[in-house]
Computed example of a mutant assay.
Amino acid sequence: MKWAIRDLLNPVVTRSLLYGADPFDLEAILKKIDNIKVRSGKQIQEVWINEWHAKIDRYSELRDKAEKEGNRISAREYAKMVTQCHYACFMINIEDLEHKTEIYNGLEESYKRYIKLCKNKVEYAEIDTKEGKLPAYIHYPDSGRKTNYPVAVTYSGIGSCKEELEMLAAPLNERGIAVITPDMPGAGGAIIHRNIKCGGKQLEAAFNGIIRFVKSHKKLDEKNMANFGLCMGGGYAFRATVKNPKAKVCVSLFPLLMHFANLDSIPVWMKRGKWSSYQYADDYLEGMKILEEGTHKADFLMVYSSDDNWMSPEASQRLLSKAAGYKESIHIQDKPAYVSEETIMHAMPVGEQYHWVKHIAADFIAARLNGGK
Rank of each mutant, 00 (worst) to 15 (best):
I211K: 15
F207N: 09
K215T: 10
C231P: 03
N195I: 07
N224L: 03
M232V: 04
S216E: 12
M232S: 01
K197Q: 13
H217N: 05
K218P: 07
G229N: 02
C231T: 08
K201H: 15
E204C: 09
G189T: 06
E222N: 09
N227W: 07
A206Y: 02
K246N: 14
G235K: 14
G233H: 09
A237S: 15
K223V: 00
G200D: 11
I196F: 10
A237E: 08
L203C: 05
K218H: 13
F213T: 10
G233L: 03
G209S: 04
G233Y: 04
F228H: 10
L220Q: 11
R212W: 10
N195V: 07
M232P: 01
K197Y: 04
N244V: 01
I192F: 11
F207W: 11
I196L: 12
N227L: 10
P245S: 05
E204S: 12
A187E: 12
A237Q: 09
V242R: 10
K197H: 07
K197M: 06
N195S: 12
A205V: 05
G229D: 00
N224H: 05
I211V: 12
N227K: 13
I191P: 05
M225A: 01
I211N: 11
G233C: 07
V242D: 02
A206E: 13
K197P: 01
R212I: 04
G233P: 05
A187S: 14
G200Y: 07
R212Q: 15
A240M: 07
M225R: 11
M225L: 15
K243I: 04
F228K: 09
K201E: 15
A190M: 06
G229H: 01
R239H: 10
L203V: 11
I192T: 12
G209I: 01
G234M: 03
M225S: 05
A187M: 12
I210Y: 05
K243H: 08
Y236E: 03
N224E: 03
Y236V: 00
F228N: 11
F213E: 14
K219R: 10
G209Q: 05
C231F: 03
N224Y: 04
K243W: 03
Y236P: 00
A206F: 06
F238S: 07
L220Y: 08
G186F: 07
T241V: 08
C198V: 02
G234V: 02
K243G: 07
K218R: 13
Y236A: 02
G229E: 00
I211R: 14
N224D: 03
K218V: 01
R239S: 00
